[in-house]
Design a protein around this nucleic acid. Sequence first.
DNA 1: CTGAAAGCGCTTACAG
DNA 2: CTGAAAGCGCTTACAG
Lengths: 333, 333
Amino acid sequence: MATRLSDVAARAGVSVKTVSNVINDYPHITSHTRAKVQAAIDALDYKPNVSARSLRKGRSDFIALAIPEMASPYFAELGAAISRAAKKRGITVLIDQTEGEAAAEKFILDGMRGQLIDGIIFSPITTAPARIGAADTAKPLLLLGERHAGGNLDHVAVDSVQASFDATTHLISLGRRRIAAIGVGGGAGTGSVRRRGYRKALKAAGIEHDPALELAGTGYHREDGAASMRDLLALPEPPDAVFCFNDLLALGALRTLADAGLSVPGDVAVVGFDDIEDGRFHSPSLTTISPDKEWLAENAVAVLLDRISGSGEADRRDLIVPYTLKIRESTSG
Amino acid sequence: MATRLSDVAARAGVSVKTVSNVINDYPHITSHTRAKVQAAIDALDYKPNVSARSLRKGRSDFIALAIPEMASPYFAELGAAISRAAKKRGITVLIDQTEGEAAAEKFILDGMRGQLIDGIIFSPITTAPARIGAADTAKPLLLLGERHAGGNLDHVAVDSVQASFDATTHLISLGRRRIAAIGVGGGAGTGSVRRRGYRKALKAAGIEHDPALELAGTGYHREDGAASMRDLLALPEPPDAVFCFNDLLALGALRTLADAGLSVPGDVAVVGFDDIEDGRFHSPSLTTISPDKEWLAENAVAVLLDRISGSGEADRRDLIVPYTLKIRESTSG
DNA sequence: CTGAAAGCGCTTACAG
DNA sequence: CTGAAAGCGCTTACAG
């Protein structure tokens, strides 16, 4: 039998209300009483029952982070940052892997596990934007990733169009003209939004975009990047630069280029997106769009908690994550 | 106001007990009753209150996974596997990052967050083995990583001595004689246990171990491996092979070797430990000890759940994770 | 097979 | 500043 609040009260010789007050740091308690209660808590090694508290208060101080896969470095790094940001505020993060499955994402959108969690930070990949916008969860839901169509949900994301424009423009500034894009088929709008920035940059430079240089691939992993790069090299006129829509794709592309005996950036310059640690240590190190993940984490958590406590603004928040283009060896070897 | 069990009962025209029976799949319910109740659940979009259930049953179907850092690829991959294994059994995993902080690890050992979680899978790194063995948590605790001294806790780990012996022996079989080790100062016994296997292999081959070739470093990340490799190359007589105690160290070492213009494995052969995806795509791809992470995850979850339900054996379980040595380009280019 | 009632351990009006 | 009591939403003996 675990120690209960009433045991502590009995031992300290006060009412349960007083013990509860001490635990929850309510004011107007004499330091003498506080010390007495604290001594009883220590002596009995009392730990509050979270379920009971949560049942009574209707708040658990748990939030969920729903991401496609935690083994993907970008999401792992993001999860670590969000978990840290939440912990600072006394909140525990529960990580849910959707694995991009529609059913798992629907589960999130349906409000997840009943009353246990206070809110959700959700990075969708499969569900159509329209359906996300229509989600009517009992608990606050904050969206990560490309901007969704309509809906009234809080949202935190990089300006992907602008970032992709910058990445492509960097390649153009290097004198490259046959610039490929890998990942145009990416989920949750990522592929199409980043392609928009890519095409915009080409157009601004007076380069016509060549559909043969836009590869969709089947996913956003290293193997997809490697395969797409192989396709590109098989072209009658291969590219002299590649903008990969995430770092994993870029790392896979680099592997294919190494296998083919091509030099980077000499023969082909490569840019990624995400700035995962892997790319910083790779040789050649990877030029990439680096979103400020700490900023993202801090703000996503803050906005969600505002919403949970009801102290947030009534209208939906739309936060743009700052980013920088990190120029490394893969474009300036 | 959320829908309650009693609302469903009222609508279905049955008692709450019956609804509860349906939800919990108890037998002896006519299919007619079941259908009626299910219709009411659907109509009201009822979701059980997890806190209330957990308070009453003393079980939450939540377990915690406490790891040093989720952004580290090995732990990210492990976390993904454990999360999947638990989900199959209807259990949700809550990930806790200790960041190797003693206070955070103490929090785990003290039983964590009261009654909310049913058990803990813990990968310690800072806390001394003796103190871990002495842990007396209210909830079942299963240990990951090097075997701890004494104690009565369930434990799942690779036989690191044997695996390190194999890795080193592989290097010797390649004709290498000046074989360095990076990571001998690793936490939670990892460094010393793997060094034991490394030295054993040298000895078995009649090679005297050279303390100058055993590097401690300050951590197990890429930058530590890169720094250690620089130290090694500065030696009057640099090594012709390196066994790194994890893949991140090896990836860092490869970066330093590339910078130095040395060929791998021509000049220096490199072996890692963990088999993270990064190493498989790196060029050269990384030879490494590959623990079966799926096996580890399945068994860790199964043993912990046995312990939670009390159906496990009384005495402590000590499971050895199968592994293979994956020979890749960094030793056979 | 089903119903009425107690109780899991908290927090919070309501009194004093 | 503190006490006695109700109630959060479930599950589970206990009866029938």
